[in-house]
Nucleic acid binder design. Sequence first.
DNA 1: GCTCAAAAAGATAGCGCTACCATTTTCTTG
DNA 2: CAAGAAAATGGTAGCGCTATCTTTTTGAGC
Lengths: 358, 358
Amino acid sequence: MVALSINLTPCYEREMPRKGRKLGPIRLTEVAKLAGVSPITASRFFRNPEALSVSKRERVESAAKELGYVPNLAARALASQRTEVIGVLIPSLTNNVFNDVLRGIYDASEGSRYTIQFVNTRYSILQEEKLLRLFQAQKPAGLIVTGINQTEESRAVMEGMNCPIVQIMELGPDPVDMMVGFSHFDASIAAVSHLIALGRKRIGFLGARMDPRVQRRLEGYRKAMKDADLFDPNLILTTSTPTTMTLGGMLLGDLLAQAPNLDAVFCINDDLALGVLFECQRRGIAVPDKLAIVGFNDMEFMATAVPSLSSVRTNRYEMGRDAVTMLIEAIEGRRTGTPVVDLGFELIVRQSSTLHSS
Amino acid sequence: MVALSINLTPCYEREMPRKGRKLGPIRLTEVAKLAGVSPITASRFFRNPEALSVSKRERVESAAKELGYVPNLAARALASQRTEVIGVLIPSLTNNVFNDVLRGIYDASEGSRYTIQFVNTRYSILQEEKLLRLFQAQKPAGLIVTGINQTEESRAVMEGMNCPIVQIMELGPDPVDMMVGFSHFDASIAAVSHLIALGRKRIGFLGARMDPRVQRRLEGYRKAMKDADLFDPNLILTTSTPTTMTLGGMLLGDLLAQAPNLDAVFCINDDLALGVLFECQRRGIAVPDKLAIVGFNDMEFMATAVPSLSSVRTNRYEMGRDAVTMLIEAIEGRRTGTPVVDLGFELIVRQSSTLHSS
DNA sequence: GCTCAAAAAGATAGCGCTACCATTTTCTTG
DNA sequence: CAAGAAAATGGTAGCGCTATCTTTTTGAGC
């Protein structure tokens, strides 16, 4: 273990700090002194280098480098009365959907000055309220919250926070500030209408977790089925249990028990759909001939499954990315004209919901 | 939209802040004044209520509530010279493995006073170094880093940070501080030995992303194959591309081209394994009769697939959880005796690697 | 070369909280 | 009930940085 340490001993002696404190990390003042400028000038170098003359800029830069200066974020936040933190409230880490959203968020924040501070509400609006209060203490520069079902209290806290806020995942009539999402209701109708157009009559609905967005998908299903005069409550099976692939198979079993003549299933997410496919293989149910399957979200594996599985593509990554982009623009005072962005969806038809598997 | 606002106007008049500043949020001093105690006593209430007498405690509590006091974290961090932030450096958000680790981390931090600050190194040790420096500025209470392959510089930064640090995901000879992981080398040997014991001779290795831990799995494969006198470089196919299920199928195709008489595959993760299974279905290759499959990590879907897929179970959730637990104990000065924790692994044998599919 | 505006640099005074130490109050105990 | 120890409380002085305003320097235009 040879640590090659090229450490040019600085031609500079640190003065003892006030009041017999131990020598902590390098402070801005020390950088300024070494550079031969005032502290405030050194401060400006780190926030807006263009404001310095070239000569001072270079002197501060090399002094900071020589001393290995690291700014103290707490002091900065206290003095400037703001932070460069974007708070993100998301209901789950288990649900892969949010994984993609988070990726978009982190990707978009990269290269910007902003730091993501992510918390997990666990699908509880009370937990959300609590975490929102916690964010209050941090004075974030911006906030991303999931969905539109916040408590009155949460809304009050958000409105009092005095920072831009983006609600993501869905759209609603009364944005706190900005929104990026799509209509789960419409997406669901598209999926179910497709199955109806295929000539399926006994189209089941499989739902798990049943968060507000899934509820709206159920509403879409209801609407489409009623409009086609195909609605039958026995075709619906939901549970509040979190989603897994295994659960998909189990739910299919239960649904078949309550609706034996099922000829299609709309699953509220792709994990359930793949679980359903496996269960069909286990039971010898031909897909799509005997049972058509449509999932939701269009995860990567849907295209690769055998048979390939239809799904509703949602723009999860883009949702996270756009939310951060909109937020940063708003923080920096250049809001775009559109505070509500509909990212839409796309029905992807694959083998699992075609006329014949031929 | 009726916002029912029960706002008992406080029988208390805020004095103008110094120097004509606008009236900002409530400060601790104001709470103290309303409670009729000194600011430092009020401060103590929020950090260690037990230190106050019952009467003062109640007075401060109700004053804080009445004024809706929210402490200023930046001021607290600056004055106390520490934060309650645990920094987490993880290489990927795409890889579901880290999803589980993160879940463990967030779950374990919940209820504690610590906040998780997570960043994504994108499998780059240079990016890691940069992010580590960024954390320096924040003075975190503790740090979780992934793996043992840090740059010299990164190690130096970590050592200078003066906070407990846990390295997760794998074990190594020279911990920066603490470690929670398991031996990827041994786990790989277990998987390959199982296939050898099954009588398979032409056992392929499919790898993607090829991060340091995957490299060690490859080493394990090499060792097991060489020890059994079955080693053949043509059986190995790796790519630096990120993992997807679709990639699994493509890689199988390529591997079959370079080693046509393949009778088993060890995939470095479950996504590849499921992709391989789908590809087998597409090509009419019987699993496990013609081709046995073993994956890695034992994601939930492995048990549900048809046929069910063998895998090496790793304790990802526990890794995250234990890392945080160890960190908090160390931060609070009660380290346990074991700074290096081996969480082990377990070979889960399922249909995809049994003698006969019967 | 002089005037005046703009750019660059600096002095001052906190940001809101807690560490540290001093002081006061309360509780023991012979 | 006095003396000493322990618990509770308070005064003072920053933590390291930046907002604000002032002063100095630079540069453009005639």
